[in-house]
Amino acid sequence: MPNPVEQLGALSLSLLREMGRMVNFLVYALYKIISSPGKPIHILKQLYFIGAKSFFVIFLTASFTGMVLGLQGYYTLTKFGSEGMLGSAVALSLIRELGPVLSALMVTGRAGSAITAEIGIMKITEQIDALRTMALEPFKYLVSPKIVGAVIAVPLLCAIFDVVGIYGGYLVGVKLLGVNPGAYFHEMEKSVEWKDVYSGIIKSISFGVIISWVCCYKGYYAGHGAEGVSRATTSAVVMSSVLVLIWDYFLTSILL
């Protein structure tokens, strides 16, 4: 029976080793993106898979997020008699916070898990080893296009999320609850600054890196058998969601 201090040390060391491996993985992947960019068709496929196929899920979540923001915002603002501010409340919370984070979480759930499963299954069926045997760089075909694809697709999805959410809020606020439509858009245009839009985009670019990085890494180092892949997929989704939320806090405090 090992003593508790020894266990703690072993745990810390293994955590540290894991973190080091993850950072190495990212740095190597970024180096590969620059040194040997793959064919555009690989990136195009990832854009289709991560971006275009996530469109409907983003559209659905964005419209309902915007609608519930309209409802909640109206309920709160009407207490102060300032329903006219509904537009800026909806737009600012979407652009600064909810758009980047929720779109990143949806992409993690829809595309991130699939990325991990795909790479994980290639790993356990030794397809990655086969690539390497044929002197083909697995990063170039598997990892780099996914990271590039996610970095392009996630900010675009976030922008779609913002706009759809704003119109969702418009639908509830103006059409159902009777806020003045001119006030809705005018207050919104007055209160949203370029800085807000910019910080939202920076956020969602970094979320794109985090999602693709964690999900590729987890798949690439998946354990043995079907159980290994299932465990890798679960931990990839959990870890990238948690990292997105933690990183969101720190990025917000830097950008604010």
Binding site: Y48, E189, V192
Partner: peptide, 22 residues
């Protein structure tokens, strides 16, 4: 399909940054 997706995304981005972000 990717072209349509990117176009829609860029249009949304343009709306946010030019109309709202001034």
């Amino acid at each position: 399909i990717v072209g349509i997706f990117v176009l829609v995304g860029i249009l949304c981005l343009a709306y946010l940054s030019i109309k709202l972000g001034k």
